[in-house]
Each structure stands twice: as structure tokens, then as C-alpha cells.
Design a protein around this nucleic acid. Structure first.
Lengths: 235, 235
DNA sequence: TTTCTAATTGTTTATCATACAATATGATTA
DNA sequence: TAATCATATTGTATGATAAACAATTAGAAA
């Protein structure tokens, strides 16, 4: 690996969302810390301190590429976090200094939201072997590094607001072929409400960028639904 | 002044908007640079590198307090800017190193939008003597430091989006007592459109937080309009 | 053939956004 | 004091959108 100079004062963290058909999930990495011969486990967001000559968005893409192997990921900066106390937990400091070989002081981190199709993870480097899709409604039930719970909550709020203005953003989370029910359940999950089935159908039929494929679902134990695709050119 | 340790890797810039009754203005500081016995003048956003132990939002409040003397300013983080080239203009580097006495490399800056009543500027420290309210539509006609034009444009886009969702934010820009016409002109300025006078009046009458004062304008050469105030408790 | 599960479809009503112009008021002026 | 000027104030009709509400259909399984 070529010599790259890190800037240990600024980092980028990615809140990667996926949808499993039922719930919204966030991609987390397992972290293992050895503390006085005891192992401590928790989870963290994929992130990295930036290179000295790297743009913020490039850093986010770098992280996502290494993590998922994907190109053309939906990515959007949503907020920066700079509480001086956010990098003061000794466990986090030790972990940082071990993984970066740098003396770490304060780090301001820039939060990005990414949206991917949950089954699209490709090559995973070894360092990203311990990846889990974690239910965003169960964040209270696990331990996260740094202020990553707060970052996820803000990322979630951001994507809720943003998908109101840009509903086409939801298709990043659905399979390439999807049913209107899948779209509705995703929509309802994100907006935390229950839509009327008929009204939702009508609304979708008026979206020129949702086009019927003339195919039906297969292997479902009930009436098969029509399949649709998203056509970005028609947005 | 007590010893405060700066963190020269991260800064905060404030895009302070005001409204003069006609146009949206942004608050800029005049910058004077001596270059080989020639004076070079341009403008910059109020901003500062952060203190090592200071939160981002606290830094923004610190800047605004020193600049305006005001407390309780509407403030909202909107985006961070980290292009490595943004701090590579020699003029900017010289200016930074002269004003901070620090060796400056790359700086990531966090953008905040602030909204104030244009006539409310109070104490101005000497260092902020050269303050101008600059028309946001005339930004092409002046020279700005760093990437401050871009930061202002993004801040403007942010406030446009945000005031759609939170119309009560507009009252930060109006005098304490205002007419519905003033509110409409501000609204139209921000949304870049022309509202129908009657429809706008109806809309305002349905806002419980806009309350009539039972007073009228004075010293206007035409029929005096009713005055209203904004009641935050009724939002 | 029956049953089960989810998919598909229309009508009514209320609400909200838009289009559109005449009259009223206060100050100024002739 | 009457006319004029500039802006404030007000209502109705129409179209578009959102919300409420249930019966029928299709495919798989029993």
C-alpha cells in the first residue's frame, strides 16, 4: 500500500441503510477490544479518518467501496458531529490508536447516509468480515462506539425528511424488481405510519418512473403481485 | 485574554441572513490584505477555527455573539466543506497565518446559517468594524475569500428548503411588529415567486401564531396596514 | 372443489391551492 | 374640502389533491 498521510482530526462516518422487506436496517461492524485479558465487544459505524488530500465525499465513497464493493451508491452528507467529549471514551481512544497507529486527540466527524439494496453486498475485505445488518428499532439493545447511536438517529431523521421531498430515493432500498406492496411497506416503515392500500396504489400509478414489467411474483403462497421497476430517466 | 488552544484543522463559518424589506442580505466582513505594498480587498464570511475544547455549535455562537452582541440567535448547521483545495489559495493562507499565528494546512469548515433582524446589530468589536450587508443576488459582483460563495449558495438553498417545512422561521428575519405585506414580500423573496395577495392573506389568517396587535403602521404615505406579531408559543 | 392469503380496484367527501377584481382607507395635493 | 394617489383589505368559484371506506379476483395449498 502506498504511503498516504492521514488527517487524524476529521473523520467520515457512513450510516448505511438497507431494507429487508419488513424493517429498516443499518450496517454495523463488530468491534473487538481486548481489555486486561477480557474481550469487550460492541459495534460501530463504518468510517475512517480522512486522508490529508482527500475530499469528504471521496472519503465516504472510499469507505463504502471497501465495505461493499459497490460503485454508484446513493450518498448524502447530513450532519457533522464535533462534541469534544465524543472521542473521550478510553475504550474508543485505545481502539483508534491501535488501528491507526496515530496519537488521537479530538475528532470531528462528518456523517453521510448511504442507501443500498440489502442483498447487494459484494466483495468484503477481511477487515470488514464482521458486518451485521442491525434493526434501527433495536438500537437500544446493543452497545455502540463513540456517539454512533446519535449519529444513526440523526441520519434516520434526515432520510425521513429527505424522502418526503424526493420519494424516488426509496427505490435505492428496494430490489430491482419490486411489488407495490413492497414499496408501500418500505414507505410506511420510513414514515412511521400505515397507508391505505388503495390510495397508495393510486399514488404509485401516477408516478411515471414506476413502470410495470408485465411479470408477476413467483413462489408466493397466494395471488402473485405484478412486478415493477424504477426508471430514473422518468423522474 | 486567557490561553485558549486552537484546533487549526476545523473551522466554523456563519452565513448570517437579514432582510431589508426588499432583498435578502448576507452579512460579510471586509478583508484587507497587503500584498507587495499593494492592498487587496475582498469579503469573507464571519468564521473562526474552533477551540480544541469547544463544540461546533458553541463556536458558531461565539462568532455570532462577538459579531452582533446578540443572544438567542436562530442557528442551524447545514453542511460541511472539505475540498482539500479550499484552503490552497496563497492569499487565504497568508491571511490565515497572519491572523492566527498558526501554521495552516488543510481546514474542513462546518457551515451554519443564522437568521437575524437586520436592524438588531448591537455591539461591534473593533475587529468587526467592517461589516456589510450584501445582497445575495449580487454575489457575482464581488470577490469572496476561500469557497465562501459556494458556502453562501448552499446556505441559501438550505434556508429555502427549510422554510418550506418550518414557515415560522421567517419571523426571525422580520421586525418584531410587521405587516402581512412585509411577510409576503419576504416569503416571495425566499421562494422566488409572486404570491397572490388575497390567497396569502387567507393563509396567514389561518396561522395561529401570527397575532394582530390592533395597531397600524405610521408614517406611510398611503393607507396604513395592520401590524402583527409572531407568538412562538402558538406554533 | 374448497379454502386461504394477499392483490387489485372506484367512489365519495373533505381539504387545500389557485385564479381572479372591486372597495376601503389614510395621506397628499390641488 | 374635494380629488387623487398608493397600498390595504376582502370573497367566491374551480380544480387538484388527500383521506376514508370494502368487495372482488387470482394463485397456491389443502
Amino acid at each position: 500500500m502506498s504511503e498516504v498521510k492521514f488527517n487524524p482530526h476529521v473523520s467520515v462516518d457512513c450510516v448505511v441503510f438497507g431494507f429487508d422487506g419488513k424493517n429498516l436496517k443499518v450496517l454495523l461492524l463488530e468491534r473487538h477490544i481486548k481489555e486486561q485479558n477480557e474481550f469487550y465487544n460492541d459495534k460501530k459505524l463504518p468510517g475512517s479518518i480522512i486522508f490529508e488530500t482527500e475530499d469528504l465525499e471521496s472519503a465516504a465513497y472510499r469507505i463504502l467501496n471497501e465495505l461493499t464493493g459497490l460503485k454508484n451508491i446513493y450518498l448524502s452528507q447530513f450532519q457533522s458531529f464535533g462534541d469534544p467529549k465524543r472521542t473521550k471514551n478510553p475504550r474508543d481512544i485505545v481502539w483508534l490508536e491501535n488501528t491507526t497507529n496515530l496519537k488521537i486527540g479530538r475528532i470531528v466527524t462528518v456523517g453521510y447516509v448511504a442507501l443500498i439494496k440489502i442483498n447487494s453486498l459484494l466483495q468484503l475485505k477481511n477487515e470488514y468480515a464482521d458486518v451485521v445488518w442491525f434493526d434501527v428499532n433495536k438500537l437500544g439493545k446493543t452497545r455502540l462506539a463513540f456517539d454512533h447511536v446519535q449519529i444513526i438517529q440523526k441520519g434516520l431523521a434526515y432520510i425521513r425528511r429527505k424522502s418526503d421531498l424526493e420519494p424516488e430515493l426509496l427505490f435505492e432500498l428496494l430490489p430491482r424488481k419490486f411489488t407495490i406492496s413492497q414499496l408501500r411497506i418500505l414507505h410506511d416503515t420510513i414514515h412511521q405510519k400505515q397507508s391505505d392500500v388503495r390510495n397508495f396504489q393510486k399514488k404509485v400509478k401516477k408516478m411515471p418512473y414506476v413502470v410495470a414489467l408485465g411479470e408477476k411474483e413467483k413462489n408466493v403462497p397466494h395471488r402473485a403481485a405484478n412486478l415493477y421497476k424504477f426508471d430514473r430517466k422518468k423522474v
